[in-house]
Design a protein around this nucleic acid. Structure first.
Lengths: 343, 343
DNA sequence: CGATCAATTGTGAACGTACACACACCTTGG
DNA sequence: CCAAGGTGTGTGTACGTTCACAATTGATCG
């Protein structure tokens, strides 16, 4: 209860102080601050000098009150959060978005909608206009929060293609299908023909697309698609292990596996090792994501790298464009094949 | 350039609208909103009903403009960020802080001060009063940003004991020393007497404290401290591997190792395995952190768990108290020994 | 019964900024 | 030489809220 904060916080200078210091009016200072049109060079310089001398920083609350903008955006996570926070790619995304926004002097508000209560609170916060737009991370099908925000006309950019196609929301995503194509083509080029696949969850666009790419390339190459070579997974390591076992049982002559995530691929390696199959001699294994799991595995995983740094930058670019009133479309970015020891 | 945002965002209701709807004055509505003292039950109910009917949400900008508070706090990371974003504990911390703040309806602004430019921008942002306080993550010795914020009288709570002792900043930390003591006691109880240690970086409080705990327990137990059993590390996996090799060379009769981080412990396991030592039969290994690396290792690591969920909750509690004008002190939280296969 | 006091409510600033408007000046062209 | 238009600047107002203050009522007390 005692007075702390030694020194205390002094009252910061206002636009009035700057105006007085520079010998001009508030209006002129404001014009120098924003845009800067219709101001003489002399006045501009005087104002800038005064700003430097006084250490003036614009009061964003006052500005927001009148402009209606908040000059901040939310980074919203609606999924069960554990999964994302364990995912290194998610961290790259969060970091990338924060930095890209910082370059525009826009702070990022982290919003975690785990419980229904949080969901309500956050929805209210956003629709009340306390952020100008939202970067959405959610693999969930037809996210109700996203729907509501979209309905309220809140600028919104998702990471990855949202599956609820009813509402058209802009999104930025890696080209899952093309990545899968690259990997399977790579396996074919190694002479493999009995190529299995452990899919991702098929209620997510990523899972669907990666499987589609796999099938496309095989069809193009004239390789018949054997449904015994297709087993489902859910991106977890355990499901990779189970998937590989099922694969070995259903199609013992499998000579390569395209696994829809690195984490699952780790499980596949474990199962293959236990079954006495050598990697890559007997069975080549290709992953997806280029996560730390890829280099932690032995042998190190050949995988598909998604351009997460570019994804975050694009999400911010698209969101700001949308806030600026432009119509925005989806952005699909190319992936990259990273060859390592497992193929 | 065309009109997008189908529907557009309608102008939200203000406190005036609520007042008119409830048949009272602005002042009464405001009183119901904050505190609620000196308002009749009838008025309170009428206002609440009006709020529900109109969907009113307070305009935080207008409120902040007059109160001087922003009702938001910054989560500041000044270190080279890669290290933290790879650290699962950091993610738990970030998540925990966000949720604890959300319970108070306070948004968290993520601030990454990587470059000098970002550092300047963020410092200006904070000292200008755009956040009420800062949660600081930084293992750096004598962080210049922290110093500056402290000098400006900004409420500040650090995670882990800051090493720049010149300025007194509040912090919340796990009891590193006691955790180390627990682990070494555990190793002694297993009958080990030639207990080695791979330390953390000794320019961080954590590294120093964990080493101190190790020495304390040995002295108490009457075991002489052999400097050949003490090798330095920097928390990285590679340094753990190198440390174990050095340990084996300097003191081949080592029968246990206390490793100051799980990541390093992984390296230690690798080196021991290569040297043909069995774990835990020949050499028992104890880690620190209870990170995912602990269960990923084989055998699974006995380790010290830090209460990250409580740490984040305490950081928020202390920061809010400090913002409220209270004097706050350091908070040290107990650790927990987690026994697994490596000892 | 008058006075003091607590409870409750309304009203008028003020917070710091952006924006519309009015005004003054200077140039240009007919 | 005057009208028209561009350029540069100052002033008043509004944004939505909180807070201090005044005003009103009813109750309590000496």
């Amino acid at each position: 209860m005692t007075m702390s904060n030694t020194g205390g916080r002094r009252k910061p200078p206002t636009i009035h102080d700057v105006a007085r210091e520079a010998g001009v009016s508030r209006g002129t200072v404001s014009r120098v601050l924003n845009g800067g049109h219709y101001v003489s060079p002399a006045a501009t310089e005087a104002v800038n000098a005064a700003i430097r001398r006084t250490g003036y920083v614009v009061n964003r609350h006052a500005r927001s009150l009148i402009t209606g903008r908040s000059d901040s955006v939310g980074f919203l996570l609606t999924e069960p959060q554990e999964r994302f926070f364990e995912d290194p790619n998610f961290n790259v995304l969060l970091r990338g978005c924060t930095q890209a926004l910082a370059a525009h002097d826009i702070p990022l508000l982290l919003m975690l909608a785990g419980t229904d209560d949080e969901r309500r609170r956050i929805t209210r916060y956003i629709t009340a206009g306390h952020v100008d737009g939202v970067l959405l991370v959610s693999s969930h099908s037809g996210d109700p929060v996203a729907e509501e925000l979209r309905a309220a006309g809140v600028p919104l950019v998702a990471c990855g293609k949202p599956i609820g196609l009813g509402s058209k929301v802009s999104y930025v995503a890696a080209d899952d299908r093309d990545g899968a194509r690259d990997m399977v083509r790579h396996l074919l080029s190694l002479g493999r023909r009995r190529i299995g696949v452990v899919t991702g969850p098929l209620d997510t666009p990523g899972g669907v697309e990666r499987l589609a790419g796999y099938k496309e390339v095989l069809l193009e190459a004239g390789v018949e698609i054997d449904e015994r070579l297709v087993v489902p997974g859910d991106y977890s390591r355990a499901s990779g292990e189970a998937g590989a076992e099922r694969l070995l049982a259903q199609a013992p002559d499998v000579d390569a596996v395209f696994v829809a995530s690195d984490l699952m691929a780790q499980g596949v390696l474990t199962a293959l090792h236990r079954a006495g199959r050598r990697v890559p001699e007997d069975v080549a294994v290709g992953g997806f994501d280029d996560s730390p799991a890829a280099v932690a595995a032995s042998p190190e995983l050949t995988t598909i790298r998604q351009p997460w740094d570019r994804i975050s930058a694009e999400m911010v670019r698209v969101l700001l464009a949308q806030i600026g009133g432009e119509d925005t479309a989806a952005v699909i970015l190319p992936t990259e094949l990273v060859k390592r020891g497992s193929t």
